Computed example of a mutant assay.
Amino acid sequence: MKSVWLAALAAVAFATPTHAQDIVVNHAQGETTLSGVPAKVLVQDWATFDNLNALGIDVAGAPSSNVPGYLADKVPAEYLQLGSLFEPDFEGIAASESDVYFVSARSAEAYGTAKDILPTIDMSLADNSDILGGIKANLVKLGDIFGRQAEAEQLNAALDAKVEEVKAAAADKGNALVIVTNAGNVGVYGPDSRVAWIHNQLGIPSAMADVEDGDHGGDGISMEFILETNPDWLFVVDRDAGTGETAGAAAALLDNELVNQTKAAQEGHIIYLDPQAAYITMHGYQGVMLLLDQVLAGLNA
């Protein structure tokens, strides 16, 4: 009798369906529970797309605009277009029956609506003064969600090694202004900006004390100020090119009598950073690695 009961119990155990273990994710706007590893992934932010792609995770849906050039060949030929960075297509998102939806930065406001449609995670960084640390933390978080912990660890190790390489190349090379050009205007980016790592993590001192970051346009300056400050290096973010408006506007704007008298210009120390990696996907792993390589090439030229 006992053997019959045990056999029946075993049959019930094998017949009971197994459920994937829930994954609880803490993020910028709260806590989200996923019912297992997500299979169908939507993302409303190109930096998060960058990080997912670096980890080898397929994405089913992404923004329909502002695709960074360095990511263009990584976007699936046929993917669900989710609207702009600022205006998601919530109807399409709801109809997709996806497992997770990532927002961040420009799309963070979508969280309030999206969280009632499907599991939504905000990957926004809280502190621009440590962008590289934020990228590493986001890679770890995504690695935990998708079971790609080893890949995240490898990427973070490569980032640390690249930073040390560029930091060594920058030692004793002088100071710099990190400037952003926007519709004919010029501003300085500083220790709280979207490219703050140039100063904070690479150790390249700012030629301008007490920069008040305006983030989009920086701390406004004139061409006369650039000459007066006379930096050893100029790192340039062309916002117009980054947003797809006018390519090459920064180079044309800075090719003038005043800037051309600076040490940076005369020594060939003006480095034009990839505008989309610097302005659109400043929190993306592959974008930052691209920027670090550009800085390294400029320093070693």
Rank of each mutant, 00 (worst) to 15 (best):
L9T: 06
L9W: 03
A10V: 06
A11H: 00
F14Q: 03
A15I: 01
T16M: 14
H19R: 13
I23E: 11
H27P: 11
Q29H: 13
L34R: 12
S35K: 15
A39K: 15
A39V: 09
L42M: 06
L42N: 02
A47V: 04
F49M: 10
D50R: 12
D50S: 08
N51L: 14
L55F: 08
V59W: 02
A62E: 01
A62I: 07
S65C: 00
N66T: 01
N66L: 14
Y70C: 02
L71F: 01
L71G: 01
Q81R: 05
L85W: 01
D89Q: 11
D89K: 11
F90E: 07
E91L: 11
G92Q: 13
A94E: 10
S96E: 01
S98Y: 04
Y101F: 15
F102A: 08
A105D: 15
A105W: 15
A108E: 14
A110E: 10
Y111C: 07
A114F: 12
A114M: 13
P119G: 04
T120F: 06
T120H: 11
I121F: 05
S124I: 08
S124L: 08
A126T: 12
D127Y: 10
D127F: 06
N128A: 05
D130R: 10
I131S: 02
G133D: 05
A137W: 13
L139D: 13
K141N: 14
G143P: 10
G143M: 11
R148G: 02
Q149A: 14
E151L: 02
L155F: 13
K162W: 03
K162V: 06
E164K: 08
E164F: 00
A170E: 04
D172Y: 03
K173H: 05
K173Y: 00
G184R: 09
V188I: 15
Y189A: 03
I198P: 00
I198G: 04
H199D: 02
N200L: 05
N200Q: 07
L202N: 15
L202K: 14
I204D: 09
S206M: 14
A207Q: 11
D210T: 09
V211Y: 04
G214V: 12
D219I: 10
S222A: 09
D232T: 07
W233C: 08
F235W: 05
V236A: 10
V237T: 09
V237A: 12
D238N: 13
D238I: 05
R239I: 01
R239K: 08
D240M: 07
T243K: 03
T243F: 08
G244Q: 00
L253M: 15
L253F: 07
L254P: 04
N256C: 01
N256A: 00
N256P: 00
N256I: 02
L258H: 02
L258A: 08
V259G: 01
A265F: 15
E267K: 14
I270K: 12
I271A: 09
I271G: 01
Y272Q: 04
D274K: 05
P275C: 09
Y279W: 07
Y285D: 13
G287N: 12
G287P: 13
L290H: 05
L291Y: 06
V295H: 08
N300P: 04
